[in-house]
Amino acid sequence: MTTAVTPATATDPPEPEAHGRPRRRITERDGRRIPPWQLALRYALLLIVLAVCVGPFLWQLSTSLKGSHENIYSYPPKLLPSSPTLHNYAGVADIIPVWDYALNSLKVAAASVLTNCAGASLAGYALSRLRFRGRAVAVLVFLVAMLVPAESIVISQFLTMRQLHLNNTLTAVVLPGSIGAMNVLLMRNAFSHLPYEVEEAALVDGATVWQRFWRIALPSVKGTLAVVAIFSFMGAWDDFLWPLIVLSDPHEYTLTVGLNYLHGTFSSDQRLVAAGTIIAVAPLIVMFACLQRYFFRGVGEGAVKG
């Protein structure tokens, strides 16, 4: 599974200047050599941490590939399946509609990406570039909303959804996080860092607000937009507490809620649970492998915002 995460192309935000450096000798940035024993120690430590961080995923993958005749409780534990089979991936679908749940999660995550990208960039642009009465109040609204922990309002959110007759729908799962306050502020920040002259020139040429937003500003903040998209996807795909509360009909479950349900069922077979978790985690690992740079960048921007 982790071999999918190998691309050595991963960029490295903290030390971008290290790129293109000849790789013949293993040196530090200032050109001094690292003594071989130190290097060996370093790799040894790296491998230990690697085992700790990735090992559990691989163990889960291995368990999910073990056939029903293979004893998964054998002692000593067998790291590799004796005859790998995909049987459990079909088997888990017999107990819970895991592919429907995956589809539900995908719908929720995709909707969340769309609404967040659209809503946050529109609001962020207005907050950064347009002058209107009440702008300071609007900024304050988003700041306050960012400070309210979602965990402390889930019950009221549920009552709100019930009043709107939306409880137990995927729409209700998406709505509360559909335009994150933090994403709005991130986009506002990104727009504010653009040089203003280009837009001013467009303004002089008679471009409307929409044209300036769509043709000039938005294409220049693609990086931040990608961060917003990725973290919206991940947030929606991984969310558990809110879908758990708002969804009561097992047909509408998302993957996380469905997996927890599977884990709780009476005769849960570890092989099947393992297959379910791999189904849930694989798309994100693939996404991470392809878009690493934005994941790392998002951590930086999110942390500074607090």
């Binding site: 982790t2 690292i34 790799y43 941490v49 995923f57 991984d238 996380t256 997996l259 690992i285 790392f296």
Partner: peptide, 22 residues
Amino acid sequence: QIPGIAFFRAAFYTPVVASVVV
């Protein structure tokens, strides 16, 4: 910046990407 470090960094980040339920 030692050879393969980008791989290790990415690998150490993997648990962050997975959902808490998983």
